[in-house]
């Protein structure tokens, strides 16, 4: 009985460690609300436009490039970290909007 209980706890802890995280990042006043972030492969980053004009999300980083397009206030776009490395994430419309995401295994 004890062994079975231990097994359930250990499996539960392993499961908790394996759950991919989701990170919320705002786009407010032409800045990202988070400037630097460390995530793991599989984690999801969701960007929410809080400004009354369009923003865009893209990265031309070597280890993962994407263009999530442009979207107005209140809308969101998400991307999943695919590979370890460093992502420079920017808004194409407003080039001063930049953030760094460190992706770990």
């Amino acid at each position: 009985m004890k062994i079975r209980l231990m097994l359930v706890i250990v499996m539960g802890l392993m499961g908790a460690n394996c759950i991919a995280q989701e990170y919320e990042i705002g786009q407010k006043n032409k800045e990202f609300t988070v400037k630097e972030l460390t995530v793991r492969v599989g984690d999801k980053m969701t960007f929410t436009n809080q400004d009354p004009f369009f923003h865009n999300i893209y990265s031309l980083s070597e280890n993962q490039s994407f263009d999530l397009g442009s979207y107005p206030k209140g809308n969101q776009r998400s991307v999943v970290a695919e590979k370890p490395g460093t992502l420079k994430v920017e808004c194409a419309i407003h080039p001063n909007m930049q953030m760094i995401i460190h992706v770990e295994e």
């Binding site: 759950i19 991919a20 989701e22 209140g74 969101q76 998400s78």
Partner: peptide, 20 residues
């Protein structure tokens, strides 16, 4: 594990793109 986790958070993430 990540696939399972993705399934768990799928609904939460699915709101992405909805005009809030």
């Amino acid at each position: 594990c990540i696939n399972n986790a993705s399934a768990i958070i799928f609904l939460a993430v699915y709101v992405s793109g909805i005009n809030l």
